[in-house]
């Protein structure tokens, strides 16, 4: 970690090797397209390489890297106009048109992007509502609402 922060490319490649699973997994849950998710994951590591010297505590690298990934995804979502209104009422979302149980990824794909992000960070990554608000820059109340509504929808859709 220290070597990577000093510009050692081989040390950073080892960090990428160890952390790629969690970052690619996180972004694949957020994106519907695995290729796009991997592209954003690569961009996450490039940004991390550029900003590594700003990281104060080596032990916080994992959480910091996830924050970078969230920022990269949010930038992509804004460019793709996926976040036209993060406060939009999620009631407009339709339930899956399949009967019976569906898998987690398909259920996540049905959530609107802000809800998907909040649900994945809360249930998948174990972040608190405050940490999600910090990572996304959204108000705490909005985050709580997205987690509650998105979580309730997932539970409903994933009923056995």
């Amino acid at each position: 970690m220290m070597l990577a922060a000093l510009g050692d490319e081989r040390a950073f490649a080892e960090l990428v090797r160890r952390r790629q699973g969690s970052i690619r997994g996180l972004l694949r849950k957020l994106c519907r397209d695995a290729t796009l998710a991997d592209d954003l994951a690569q961009e996450t590591f490039v940004q991390a390489w550029r900003m590594l010297s700003q990281l104060r505590q080596a032990g916080a690298f994992g959480g910091w890297l996830k924050q970078v990934a969230v920022r990269i995804w949010l930038q992509h979502a804004r460019r793709a106009k996926l976040l036209l209104d993060p406060l939009e009422d999620a009631e407009a979302i339709t339930a899956p048109d399949v009967t019976g149980a569906i898998d987690l990824q398909r259920a996540l794909d049905r959530l609107n992007p802000p809800q998907r992000l909040c649900v994945v960070l809360s249930y998948g990554e174990g972040l608190s509502h405050g940490e999600i608000a910090d990572a996304t820059g959204w108000p705490l109340g909005t985050v709580k609402s997205h987690v509650a509504r998105g979580g309730a929808r997932l539970k409903e859709w994933l009923k056995p």
Partner: peptide
């Protein structure tokens, strides 16, 4: 907790050397 467990079960290990090479090339 059911939802958290489902997320944990869904975490498949994604890891390959091509990804590491692609990041190095991009840098």
């Amino acid at each position: 907790s059911d939802l958290i467990r489902l997320f944990a079960e869904d975490d498949s290990a994604i890891s390959d050397e091509a990804f590491v090479s692609a990041v190095s090339a991009r840098i």
